Simulated assay, not measured.
Amino acid sequence: MEQLTEVTVRPIDLAAWAPYALEVQAQAFGLSAQEVAVRLHIVGRHAQQSGVLAFGALAGDRLVGFGYGMPNQREHWWSTVIEPYLAARGHVDWLDGVFAITELHVLPQYQGRGLGSTLIRTLCERSGLDRSILSAIDAETPARRLYRSLGYRDLARAVPFPNTDRPYTVMGARLPLLDRSYSAPANSR
């Protein structure tokens, strides 16, 4: 069993840390090597976006978690996919003036230690905006429970994204996020 070392959260250069972030995401999210390669290019494009914020959770010099986001833009691919689902539920205003959490992942062995909460809180606090939006797999997962504990609520469910069989839920929260303690069940991932 791996000894868990102290973890610090700090800003990271998203472009420089992208390969390490994708290693974390692959383990946390179960991505194939092909999916990692595709996402590496996407993260590279995101790193060039205006207003992007990225934070890493580091155990020594090892990235064990990361999160990044940016002010949402309607012309971004993600927004064009979710827009009709938000509009159908009267929530299209959540595409404007919001901070989009793009990715948030923590290595399985470091989950349940508050790193995800610290990462998302830090991103939202530094965004300078008064609302946040994200998408999560449409299932009762530790991630969805975390988001709800922070004040996120479902805006649209069963949203299909191209190239995935899993439906997603789009969630939104007013900022600052709620200050409720969250702890994942000991056996969850």
Rank of each mutant, 00 (worst) to 15 (best):
I120Q: 08
R145L: 14
G69K: 06
A88P: 01
V92A: 14
L175V: 11
R45W: 06
G65Q: 11
L115K: 09
R157V: 15
F66Y: 12
I12V: 15
A33P: 05
G97M: 05
W77Y: 15
F55P: 00
R45Y: 07
L31H: 12
A54V: 11
C124D: 06
I12A: 09
P84W: 05
G172W: 00
P71S: 07
L63I: 14
A33R: 15
R157T: 15
A57V: 02
Y168M: 15
S79N: 10
S183E: 12
N72V: 00
R144S: 07
V9G: 00
T169D: 01
H105L: 00
S132V: 04
A47S: 15
D13M: 00
P84F: 13
W77L: 14
V24N: 03
R189V: 10
Y85F: 14
D179M: 06
V92Y: 00
H41S: 03
S79G: 13
D93N: 10
V43N: 02
R89M: 02
T169G: 01
G44Y: 09
V9A: 03
R131P: 02
E35V: 09
W77K: 12
R145E: 10
D61K: 06
E125W: 06
P162R: 05
L31V: 00
T118M: 12
F29M: 12
G56Q: 09
G44W: 07
T169K: 05
R153D: 03
E6L: 04
L63F: 01
P19G: 03
P11Y: 08
A158E: 06
G112Q: 12
R39N: 07
G30I: 13
S50P: 05
L104F: 09
P142E: 06
R148H: 11
A59R: 00
A57M: 02
F29Q: 07
L123K: 02
A59H: 01
V38C: 00
R166M: 14
A21T: 13
T164A: 04
T102F: 10
R166V: 13
L14H: 08
S183V: 12
Y182N: 00
R145M: 11
P84V: 05
Y152R: 06
Q34W: 15
N187K: 00
G65T: 10
A139M: 02
V38D: 14
G128Y: 13
N72D: 04
P167E: 04
N163A: 13
Q111V: 04
E23C: 10
L104N: 03
V7T: 14
I42S: 06
R74Y: 11
E103F: 14
